[in-house]
Nucleic acid binder design. Structure first.
Lengths: 225, 225
DNA sequence: ACAATAATCCATGGATTTATGGAGGATGTC
DNA sequence: GACATCCTCCATAAATCCATGGATTATTGT
């Protein structure tokens, strides 16, 4: 192999890796990955939740598919996208972690979005202990589909936008541990603020379903729809 | 916070992550990361090794710096770049792993570059056992600077382009275990082919220094400049 | 102060990417 | 078969990225 061919094939290999890197180079695509990490979804549903034009969403999903991050499954007239594997979720989580650790802009953007919440949080391990001892109730505030696709065993599902009128479904004497998609998901922050304002004892889980799944803790799924 | 502001701050957070993702979106930048994972280097040195115009290399390094992946240190007239942390190397390694697992183009490009080598390889654990039993010699074929920045304890340094005229430095009776930068580094492949042609018993370590470091195995460094 | 070296900054043209309408393909319903 | 639905493909204009040459800044040596 000549030196020229060699450096050309080398470039091709790095470019092949970069093709996957490119898929991580757009905020919208990361948002789609974040949603897909919760379970599979149709193009239409993803577009709506992410606030994207259908065509644009489809194009981004094609890019993710090219990168090998997602796979598709046709069911009748609609196409369901899902993550190609746990390693993809892991890569996504690590990208966020590294970015937060080394870029000042990230914590700033994070606080602007989530609210600069110094409130106490519970770690996964603490939560498991307290579930076992039975002195807490676990609340999942994600949309119902995501709860059905997989949730912490024993968790109650009340999507955050229904929470105000459904607080009566929560026992009054127990502390409420709230979680949602992951470390940067706003839903649990909002829910804790709402519950606290209503005089309930509510606390946030450190992170969310993404990290729970990645640490290989048990996950329950509903058979409904 | 209004719904509009909220979705704007949400977009800003995802875009902040994507800014780091963008740094992974170019083959040249990945090549620079790969080099930096071996130890710090000046802009000029990086440009030469990666075959880049100085200006272009500098621009790519700025991008990596913006992403938080590298930091700089000035020493007199030159500026040394280095990885911002082990987590960056980990992210890089995971990107490659995920890309290889889910994109057919990657294994193809890999074989084209490295040669479709079905030869036997040694895992890190096997190597540690055989080092302990003393029936192998470990050979580092990376450039000397990289060896000096950190190598497997006990390894001999002979850069691959000096290997042909320096084989006499290797003991004749022992099997030679060769390693270089990492899983996709061509140097050890070339070295094993060369040594085998010369009638030596040579075998490749599974991967290289990158993975050795990430698995927190002991690393030696020379004090020589 | 002056020159030399290393790296960054700036301007530019060419290639890619992104968002978005509109056309077209696949599937299911009537 | 006609039609509706969901999604992808195509064309296009705006924005961004990439490589490169020339100017500029920071540091060291004379």
């Amino acid at each position: 192999m000549s030196e020229n061919t060699k450096s050309a094939t080398k470039a091709r290999l790095y470019d092949a890796f970069a093709a996957s890197g490119k898929a991580l180079a757009s905020g919208k695509r990361l948002e789609l990955l974040d949603l897909l990490a919760q379970g599979e979804r149709t193009v239409d549903a993803l577009a709506k939740v992410a606030g994207l034009n259908l065509t644009t969403a489809s194009a981004h999903l094609q890019t993710l598919k090219q990168a090998g991050f997602v796979t598709t499954r046709r069911e009748g007239v609609r196409i369901h996208y899902r993550l190609a594997g746990d390693d993809v979720a892991q890569l996504f989580a690590l990208l966020r972690k590294v970015a937060e650790a080394h870029r000042a802009a990230v914590p700033a953007a994070r606080d602007a979005y989530l609210g600069e919440d110094t409130a106490v949080e519970l770690s996964r391990e603490e939560l498991r202990v307290r579930i076992a001892s039975g002195d807490v109730v676990v609340l999942d505030v994600r949309p119902v589909e995501e709860y059905q696709a997989g949730h912490i065993p024993g968790a109650i599902s009340i999507p955050v936008d229904e929470l105000a009128e459904r607080t009566n479904e929560l026992p009054e004497d127990l502390e409420i541990v709230v979680y949602c998609r992951g470390e940067y998901c706003v839903l649990a922050y909002d829910a804790v603020r709402l519950l606290t304002d209503l005089g309930r004892r509510a606390i946030r889980l450190n992170d969310g379903m993404l990290e729970w799944r990645l640490s290989e803790l048990p996950v329950d799924a509903s058979d409904l729809t």
